[in-house]
Write a protein that binds this DNA or RNA. Sequence first.
DNA 1: CTGAAAGCGCTAACAT
DNA 2: ATGTTAGCGCTTTCAG
Lengths: 348, 348
Amino acid sequence: MTKSAKHPTLSEVARRAGVGTTTVSRVINGGRRVDPQTLAHVRRVIEQLGYMPNQAARILKGGRTRTIGLLIPSIADPFFSACAEAAQAIARANDSLVIVTTTQNDTSVEIANVNVLTRHRADGLIIAPADSKSQALRTLLARLSVPVVALDRPLSGTSIPAVLADNFAGARTGTNHLIEHGYRRILCLTGEPTLYTIRERIRGYREAVKSARIEYSVDTSVKDHRSAEETIERFLCGSYPPDAIFTLKNSTTIYAFEALQKFGIEVPGSVAILGYDDFELAATVRPAITVIRQPIEEMGRVAAELLFEQLQEPGKTAWNSSVDGAKKIRLDTRLIRRESCGCSETIS
Amino acid sequence: MTKSAKHPTLSEVARRAGVGTTTVSRVINGGRRVDPQTLAHVRRVIEQLGYMPNQAARILKGGRTRTIGLLIPSIADPFFSACAEAAQAIARANDSLVIVTTTQNDTSVEIANVNVLTRHRADGLIIAPADSKSQALRTLLARLSVPVVALDRPLSGTSIPAVLADNFAGARTGTNHLIEHGYRRILCLTGEPTLYTIRERIRGYREAVKSARIEYSVDTSVKDHRSAEETIERFLCGSYPPDAIFTLKNSTTIYAFEALQKFGIEVPGSVAILGYDDFELAATVRPAITVIRQPIEEMGRVAAELLFEQLQEPGKTAWNSSVDGAKKIRLDTRLIRRESCGCSETIS
DNA sequence: CTGAAAGCGCTAACAT
DNA sequence: ATGTTAGCGCTTTCAG
């Protein structure tokens, strides 16, 4: 095993092959304008040496790095990992590598990651910002010389295009569905109320409830099983117990569902439940949970497409200097009727 | 907005600051051996110019790239995304970036990805090989000059260390649990029988069943809901219907559970079910599903730790030239008793 | 069709 | 404490 030395270089290949470096360079870049004889010979030497061009040296020459950065809260979150997978597929089609970094929804980690990716000279960035309004992040991004696309959450007050789900309309649709079923005391449950998406969903819920002129309450303190149980118990024992629960995010839906199950409350008989965001086993639990489904893969795909589009036509950075004049692509959500809202029994 | 030009370089900073390049280099590398005055000044210029060192140039100088590559089948698979998250945490602690690439369990994609990562001069690789025996992959990896760690699946016949779950013991434990409950006709269901992990689990199941001197059958054709339904129906209508089902992977567990639910078969009354690999809602569905849980995060963490260990002490590549003499870390699985095997009713 | 040579941005001797 | 300088491995004019 003599192979474990360092990496062979292009000039080593050239020397061994008895040709100039230019020729080798041409060979590894497609082999055009090279005599078939030489081509074959050089290729053989490359193979034999196990030569791999050093990406760093190429990058240094100033070209594209064929690398894009993806900044998401967590890679273990099904929503974002699905987005990431979709974005990766587009990147691969564009012959690019994706570097995924996770931010834990922490703006300072986010900024650190943007810096790392900038040092690596990523050609562009796709980011799901923890805080749509972070001044630090916005100014950092503004100074960047590469295109950026916001995913799932916009970057307000910037010219950065965003690919979003229509959280407002989705939540309104969900709430209205519950209202159409006849529920009048719809409790809205969630956690992480600082996130853009959650705020939009709350807005949608409020709008629907207001239009129907019914009472409402929102509780944004659900973080885990315990807080879900406590909150639900409190409301259920209150003077105006809910007849339905609208949960604004995946984990909350699950916590609430389990709490209801634990308390032995009939769903949807005593209390109905409808969740924002679909998840794998929503159709498998009993009762199956009705949800608002987001076009997750499409979001990742569209964001990546948008980025590569900008990479293609440089300078065409749609510069609407007006605040929030940036392009916003809002994708539609869909109501998936299952059993937890009463559909299989009443409406069908 | 004059900022959107190219990236400012170190020598530009030096010129603007009226100092030499060495000084700037020292500043961006910690600022030791630099006069506090100059330090502050240079820092100001850097800030003002929005200067970011070009990683490529540093790499070119030959040092570590502080980048490791992770090759997994899919980023959307909860098992691997959890591993990835854990590995990332370790990488961050070692001040390194992780580049995650997905292989779709396709050896040729895998090889392409190894090449990409080699061109990027990743300091090391963590790989969950699609095929533990792929000759092409093994020779490619053998020529590499960087440390490699196998994750979840070993690379047989190499000196590459592997971090695995004890699939054999886990499956045996699961099967034995079913046997202890009194089940005697335990059907083993799975898909992807070519994977190392699945083969090991089948081995574990066979061993348990053989020791108990009972009949058994394994069906490895479950790919989706439909095939699960067909297979289960076929066995159920057969002359020797199973009284329990042991599923060897997550998706199979879910497909089988849903099929049973759809057919209206009482679980565990008529047929018990036990799954290999835990999943988020296994405790939420009714009945809650008993599973063999793998130490997922630990696997990702240990694999990354092992890699950085090798990175620390170069050359110490535990070179047991004997075939399969490589270090193998086998982590224990755990039986999580829930209801689908009859535990809450019989054993508790 | 092929080669020589000039950098790309940075680091690390070696001076001063 | 700080500047000068020589490459790192590659691409790319510009000449043969």
